[in-house]
């Protein structure tokens, strides 16, 4: 189908974008890479939006070294996240994730900020940034604020972002010496959304485990994490299967998703120990 749009404005800088969002009286919609939004508009899942095109705001693009963290601009495209040396060195989980996100042509335009603002429970980046313990930077008419990733995701396609706010960047703590970060998932076809996926981060302070496609939003699997911290892998698998509440849909049953969750955790642990050897 064809999109039905109320109007379009191209923001020239961040302040202009905020002004446009406010002027639209609740009808505004931020347009970044458009790889989810234009699809939704074409399917008429969203109609009459006043589009605020932020895709030209170069200040929201690129990755910078901030000492203990790296800061990834919201408009950094998937393809640039994968190729960036700072990301590869300090947050390799994100570079690995890009390989399994959609197809090349979509990765050429989709942005990390768009993926996080959308908060699709089947998307890779939300689960990854939760596993990494990121901080999100947000700009609104009252100025800038930061949101801890643990508070950012608020349910199915819901986030802590206000309608008149723009996600500007994501800060990721740099991986420690010896830190391991792995992503495991099961997908029927290359580029499809995963039936289920799992992020495992192993740090001195302990393990962090998140999953995608097994609930309304990415969540830390705290029971499984505690078991892994105790070195109890079998216990972690049992706990993980018990603490998630996956949906049944046309792609997979809840029972199957729960089964593969455990399989993915075992594969992730094997990958971490295998790599360490």
């Amino acid at each position: 189908m064809k999109a039905s749009v109320g109007g379009y404005a191209r923001a020239t800088d961040l302040q202009h974008a905020i002004t446009l969002l406010e002027a639209a009286d609740g009808m505004a919609r931020v347009l970044a890479g458009g790889q989810s939004l234009v699809a939704a508009m074409n399917m008429r899942l969203s109609t009459g939006d006043l589009l605020v095109d932020i895709s030209r705001l170069s200040e929201l693009r690129g990755v910078t070294d901030e000492g203990d963290t790296i800061r990834i601009g919201a408009l950094t495209r998937h393809v640039d996240v994968e190729g960036n040396a700072l990301v590869r060195d300090h947050a390799p989980l994100l570079a690995d994730a890009v390989k399994v996100i959609a197809h090349a042509a979509i990765r050429n335009r989709g942005t990390i900020g768009g993926a996080l603002a959308l908060a699709d429970p089947a998307a890779e980046f939300p689960a990854c940034v939760l596993a990494l313990g990121a901080t999100l930077h947000v700009m609104g008419s009252d100025g800038e604020r930061t949101i801890a990733v643990e508070d950012f995701f608020q349910g199915l396609f819901e986030t802590e972002l206000e309608p008149e706010e723009i996600l500007t960047a994501i800060s990721i703590p740099k991986a420690e010496m010896g830190e391991r970060q792995v992503l495991q998932e099961v997908t029927r076809r290359s580029g499809d959304y995963a039936l289920a996926g799992l992020c495992l981060v192993k740090r001195q302070g302990g393990h962090r485990v998140t999953m995608l496609s097994v609930g309304e939003q990415p969540e830390l699997a705290t029971d499984a994490m505690a078991k892994l911290d105790d070195g109890d892998i079998e216990g972690a698998i049992v706990s993980l299967r018990a603490e998630i509440d996956p949906p049944s849909d046309t792609k997979a049953s809840a029972k199957y998703r729960r089964h593969i969750a455990g399989v993915l955790l075992r594969r992730a642990v094997d990958q971490v120990t295998g790599d360490a050897r």
């Binding site: 234009v38 699809a39 074409n42 959609a102 335009r109």
Partner: peptide
């Protein structure tokens, strides 16, 4: 909706979806 690839065009040197770009 970006799935089939039949609309792929080149924008600024890169292959992208013609149906997901305004």
């Amino acid at each position: 909706h970006g799935v089939c690839g039949a609309c792929t065009i080149r924008i600024d040197g890169e292959a992208v979806r013609g149906c997901l770009t305004l």
